[in-house]
Amino acid sequence: AIEFSNGKTFESIGSVYMTFYDLKHKKAIIDDKKIDGEISFVNDLGDLSTNIPFDYLEKVGVHQEDKLMINGKPSSIMLDRRAGRKNELIVCEGLGGYLEITSRYARACDILKLSPRSNLILEV
């Protein structure tokens, strides 16, 4: 972006690379009161993006402000990720409609001790 703002063209910056990569991850599995998924990405703030569609929560019967367990640790479902208490795990809808796990004043990845490709189990 800096190069373009300084008036350079695509050709002067380098060749265009037109290959796309498909991120491979398993499909989340939904049971009666449990969702089995995995961590797709961990951002610089320690927030966890998952392969679990956010609407799976409704399918297992949980809604806004309900509680659930993530790998045995309590969490809350919130629309506003800033609404949680200090160091509380917050489940919210992330980019693309997938479930995201965050925390105020702490890194969710450190609380759960998870990294990309780690298994994740949500229980009601």
Rank of each mutant, 00 (worst) to 15 (best):
R81L: 08
L79N: 14
S40P: 00
H63A: 09
L45W: 02
L23P: 07
I30T: 14
I35C: 10
N43T: 02
K26P: 07
I39F: 05
N43M: 01
H25T: 15
I29V: 15
V16W: 01
H63G: 13
S76A: 12
S75V: 05
S15L: 06
H25Q: 12
D47L: 01
I77W: 02
D22G: 03
H25P: 04
D32T: 15
G37M: 05
V42H: 07
S76H: 07
K59Y: 00
G61M: 01
Q64P: 01
N71R: 07
G46S: 05
I39A: 14
M18D: 15
P53S: 07
E38V: 11
I52G: 06
I29K: 14
S75F: 00
P53M: 04
L48I: 15
D32N: 14
Y17P: 00
Y17T: 07
D55E: 14
L48H: 02
K73W: 00
F54L: 04
G61E: 06
F20Q: 10
V42W: 02
G72P: 05
D44H: 03
N43H: 03
M78P: 02
D44K: 04
L48R: 03
Y17W: 03
D47K: 05
N71S: 09
L79M: 08
K26N: 12
L23E: 10
K27L: 13
Y21N: 11
N43R: 02
Y56D: 14
D47S: 11
L57I: 10
E58H: 03
I35E: 10
K73T: 13
I30C: 13
N51R: 02
M18G: 10
K26C: 04
R81H: 07
K33Q: 13
K33Y: 11
E38C: 11
I30Q: 15
G37C: 08
K34T: 15
M69Y: 04
E58M: 01
I70Q: 11
K24L: 12
E65L: 06
E38Q: 12
